[in-house]
Design a protein around this nucleic acid. Structure first.
Lengths: 151, 151
DNA sequence: AGTATTTCGGATATATATATCCTATTTATG
DNA sequence: CATAAATAGGATATATATATCCGAAATACT
């Protein structure tokens, strides 16, 4: 019928993940970056991206410095400790781990939706992956040219 | 930041899956069902559900019979052959298998996004599950009381 | 044939996510 | 202290998904 596609993450979250990776890369070099630079690099709308950055700041995933020579950065030594799950959680919440695949309000072991068990496996895989993927490895794969932030 | 949650499927698709299961159950008893009955049973908006049913008809997943004593049904002997993947494909398209986790336009092995490989595993799991789950087993789990269509 | 019943499908309305704009606030520097 | 450069955040606009409405078409029965 429809337009829709796979929405593991919202657009906001996609931008948030890519932005955080780009900030990490620059923080290794002690460089702060602006929403303008970020959105150019990750191919996202600037103002919208700026909103998401604010949110990541509120969740203490990235740091912002106001005023001249300011910008966004991440403490070098926390980059290896930040997991993808934290970023996703900050922006899209934790329903990714809890929500029912068929939208039931209270879907659980005792009262499962038709696909509950089958989804559990997929969801647990996703959860494990998000919790075990570090920002550091994502950033290093970009700098090494093994992966890309846009196109 | 936001309102969002895990969107494996669109609402339309959630309704479509649940509706199809309910139609299957009734078709075993040779009973046709209306959008009204369906939406009551799966707790969905009637008119919107009706649209989705039309779409499933166009994709030959369910059959409709117009006029008095009409309604929706599924050929008994096709119920075991219909896979969850077909329903999802009809409503949400095939981007679920193709779309990039970070929204890149052309994300592939040669030009991967930062999470490409990690997502591949999750996605393949989901794909396998959808392609190997039959409408029959979903329907039987409802009739046996092992799973539920609402609440 | 007429009527009640039912799906079909276009038009429209509502809700939510995405995106933009503009001003206030903060801060480094001359 | 003034100025320029930056983030913060409220208000608003746009796009998309979700939901509703209503008349047209089809069909079984009387």
């Amino acid at each position: 019928m429809y337009y829709n596609y796979w929405f593991v993450f919202s657009k906001a979250c996609e931008y948030g993940i890519k932005a955080t990776i780009f900030i990490a890369i620059n923080s290794y070099d002690g460089r702060r970056v602006s929403p303008k630079e970020i959105s150019k690099e990750i191919d996202s709308p600037t103002a919208f991206t700026a909103k998401i950055l604010q949110d990541l700041v509120r969740h203490h995933i990235i740091k912002s410095v106001k005023g001249a020579y300011g910008g966004f950065e991440i403490d070098k030594d926390t980059i290896s400790k930040i997991k993808l799950a934290q970023i996703v959680n900050a922006i899209d919440g934790d329903q990714i781990y809890k929500g029912c695949g068929l939208g039931l309000q209270s879907c659980n072991e005792a009262h499962p939706c038709p696909v509950h068990d089958k989804f559990k496996l997929v969801r647990d895989d996703l959860k494990f992956m998000l919790e075990h993927t570090s920002l550091e490895e994502l950033a290093l794969n970009i700098t090494s040219g093994a992966s890309f932030l846009k196109i």
